[in-house]
Design a protein around this nucleic acid. Structure first.
Lengths: 154, 154
DNA sequence: GTATCATGTAACTTCATACGTTACATGATC
DNA sequence: GATCATGTAACGTATGAAGTTACATGATAC
């Protein structure tokens, strides 16, 4: 099954925007995400409609975060990218007259709903800010590791 | 996103087999599931390899359950149909050098894994037998409802 | 023993949809 | 008005489940 990477993709872009401190162009985001500027605009358009980001045209234009990262949950971003399908499985038929199919759909449907609820709950518990801080930790660690290597050479 | 319906599909087939008490042909299963006999054989082949069902050729041939329904969990069936993708979302890249991508992948990856674990846990807690009993309850209720309608007419 | 019935399987088509790409319009800034 | 950026339509590409056709294999009935 092909997996939808819009959420992953847009989070990547948003973290880059937080790090930049100035408008980031679709071109720059596309390079960072190894994709196409049009794809970036397409997915960012959803975030703009929800008021999560702003876009400016012309010189020094590009994308900026419109709200405080401590206030944006991943759940909100998930909704803004169009609520992609969470569970990759489904029923054969949604309106079955067959009682066997009803029994199957009910049993699986309950599980699907539970799983989706857990997914949304977890996303709702994480803010963009948390991801940004995690990134900074990684960056600091990476820097330290490089410095250690330099010392080892001296 | 198109959803994989093999698990739903095969459960439907298995319940029909339990109800039948004699070998059920791919043709019959296909009719019940509104699909094609070849599709039925394809998905049932996985169950046969895991020893969950048997197939017989020739006259009075077809598919039969090979084990006690009280002993077969939905998790086992899920594995037998080839462990279809559970979460419909994924990362852009699995081996990122980019630290931003690592932070995103870790955060989302944890959630994905949690969700998958819950899914398997729920499937592991339900046996085929439970579904079959649920179906019988529905059948009895349906029958009662029809009888009530007959009485109302009299 | 052969006609029939059923599975086994390869090869192909179909379909949905995320993603990629091209092209051009619109608007902002220098 | 030249340039830079977004906005968007239109079309192409790739993937994988599902559907379909065709034929081989094996078991049973007669």
């Amino acid at each position: 099954m092909i997996r939808d990477s819009r959420l992953s993709s847009v989070l990547h872009g948003l973290l880059h925007m937080i790090g930049a401190g100035e408008p980031v162009t679709s071109e720059q985001l596309a390079r960072a995400m190894a994709t196409n500027p049009v794809v970036v605009r397409r997915v960012m358009a959803g975030l703009r409609e929800q008021g999560l980001v702003r876009s400016e045209k012309g010189h020094a234009g590009g994308w900026t975060l419109a709200r405080d990262p401590t206030d944006i949950t991943l759940a909100e971003i998930y909704r803004a990218v169009g609520e992609p399908t969470i569970v990759a499985m489904g029923h054969r038929s949604e309106n079955p007259g067959c009682l066997v199919e009803q029994a199957v759909n009910d049993a699986l449907g309950d599980t699907f709903r539970e799983v989706e609820a857990l997914f949304l709950k977890r996303l709702g518990a994480v803010t963009l800010d948390v991801l940004a801080k995690d990134f900074k930790r990684r960056l600091a660690k990476h820097k330290q590791s490089l410095e250690d290597q330099i010392h080892a050479i001296k």
